[in-house]
Amino acid sequence: MAPQGSDIAINGQPPYLTADIESAPGVLVISGDWTIETLKDADLLVTSFLESNKGASYLDLSGLSLLDTSGAWVIIRLMRALAIPLTDETPIRPDHRSLFEAVAETNNTPPEQNRTSSPVINALEKTGEDVVEIYSDIKILAHLMGGVMASLFTSLIHPRRLRLTSIVHHVEQVGVKAIPIVAIMSFLVGAIVAQQGAFQLRKFGAHTLVIDLVGILVLREVGILLTAILVAGRSGSAFTAEIGSMKMREEVDAMRVMGLNIIEVLIAPRVIALIIALPLLGIVADISALAGGSMLLWIYSDITPASYINWLREAVAVNTFMVGIIKAPFMALIIALISCSEGLQVGGSAESLGRRTTAAVVKSIFLMVLVDGVFAIFFAAVGY
């Protein structure tokens, strides 16, 4: 509806918007019902008034009869377009003033300022955000670690509080059901390492040294590291998704209301199960990788399994095997704590769940590689 003269009005239960230029220059009079029922007409009035390019510098809201949040927001939109503030001198009923202030505060989202982006400033800003996030993750992990240790100490005093059923369930899910994929992957990796080693060392007439290469590399580094990465992607992500889904459905809050210890019920069984399962999976991976290397060398270099085993006994020692196994509990602790902490930080959306699940896998793999490097330097320094 287009404006007629100086008045804009709608028939029925009308809101009114009047700009009387002759008798009261610059005064905008708003009256009538401005509610959800008249929202369409009110919005049409405001749009028509703005299109008519009529100016105003003062509001008279004393004639408002009925007003709700919808009508208040339409009037606030008009006020912002005309740059007219709501002051103490504005004629308006006290209850309407309170509603205007509440709606204006709720929708007070200032537009983003256009600023010249500097690559240096952006890089420093991103670095600062990453540092804050790392600090927050460290605090959460320290809290969970302390809670798990307290839970284990309490279980020693009160064994009934140790949730054996949950631990056995997670050992089955994390360990037993992961054996086939771990064995197949390790078998193929061992065969690939053996093939590449034999191909390169054959040039120097030292193809038998590939057994030393396969044995030491698999037992000290590759076997447990690849197993831990696989477990992080398979079981760590499952931990985050399970706890995150419980957080989204408010089951975690319900457990807290019931007086249950979240760390004792959800976190500790998963940590214990992973610490038990990962070393055993590491042993499976080592055996499978060595078997894959043996089969490949039997086909590729005519080294029989008996000769392979005899040479392997001379190439590796017990400490070679123990280096890999010692790393396993630490990697299991990293996977469990990070996965559970990310699950507890899931928000109320599916996007948050996916983002936290991805973050759990990435952070776990990064920290495991870092820890593996630290252990490698340490064992080399002590000659073990």
Rank of each mutant, 00 (worst) to 15 (best):
residue 331 M to V: 03
residue 331 M to R: 07
residue 331 M to T: 03
residue 332 A to E: 02
residue 332 A to D: 01
residue 332 A to T: 00
residue 333 L to N: 00
residue 333 L to M: 14
residue 333 L to C: 10
residue 333 L to H: 00
residue 334 I to M: 08
residue 334 I to V: 15
residue 334 I to F: 05
residue 335 I to A: 06
residue 335 I to F: 09
residue 336 A to L: 06
residue 336 A to D: 13
residue 337 L to W: 06
residue 337 L to K: 04
residue 337 L to P: 03
residue 337 L to T: 12
residue 337 L to D: 01
residue 338 I to Q: 03
residue 338 I to L: 14
residue 339 S to M: 06
residue 339 S to L: 09
residue 340 C to V: 02
residue 342 E to V: 00
residue 342 E to Q: 15
residue 343 G to T: 03
residue 343 G to I: 08
residue 343 G to P: 07
residue 343 G to D: 03
residue 343 G to L: 04
residue 344 L to K: 00
residue 344 L to F: 14
residue 344 L to C: 01
residue 345 Q to R: 14
residue 345 Q to S: 11
residue 346 V to C: 04
residue 346 V to M: 02
residue 346 V to E: 00
residue 346 V to N: 03
residue 346 V to A: 02
residue 347 G to P: 01
residue 347 G to V: 02
residue 348 G to D: 11
residue 348 G to N: 14
residue 348 G to E: 08
residue 349 S to F: 10
residue 349 S to T: 15
residue 349 S to N: 03
residue 349 S to K: 11
residue 350 A to I: 11
residue 350 A to G: 15
residue 350 A to K: 05
residue 350 A to F: 10
residue 351 E to W: 01
residue 351 E to Q: 14
residue 351 E to A: 13
residue 352 S to H: 08
residue 352 S to T: 11
residue 353 L to I: 08
residue 353 L to K: 11
residue 353 L to M: 14
residue 353 L to E: 12
residue 355 R to P: 04
residue 355 R to Q: 15
residue 355 R to W: 10
residue 355 R to N: 15
residue 356 R to E: 08
residue 356 R to K: 15
residue 357 T to V: 15
residue 357 T to R: 02
residue 357 T to S: 13
residue 357 T to W: 03
residue 358 T to N: 14
residue 358 T to F: 14
residue 358 T to A: 09
residue 358 T to M: 14
residue 359 A to L: 12
residue 359 A to H: 09
residue 359 A to E: 12
residue 359 A to Y: 03
residue 359 A to F: 03
residue 360 A to H: 08
residue 360 A to F: 12
residue 360 A to E: 05
residue 361 V to G: 01
residue 361 V to P: 01
residue 362 V to D: 00
residue 362 V to A: 10
residue 362 V to T: 12
residue 363 K to Y: 05
residue 363 K to F: 04
residue 363 K to S: 12
residue 364 S to W: 06
residue 364 S to V: 09
residue 365 I to P: 07
residue 365 I to G: 05
residue 366 F to K: 00
residue 366 F to C: 10
residue 366 F to S: 10
residue 368 M to R: 05
residue 368 M to Q: 12
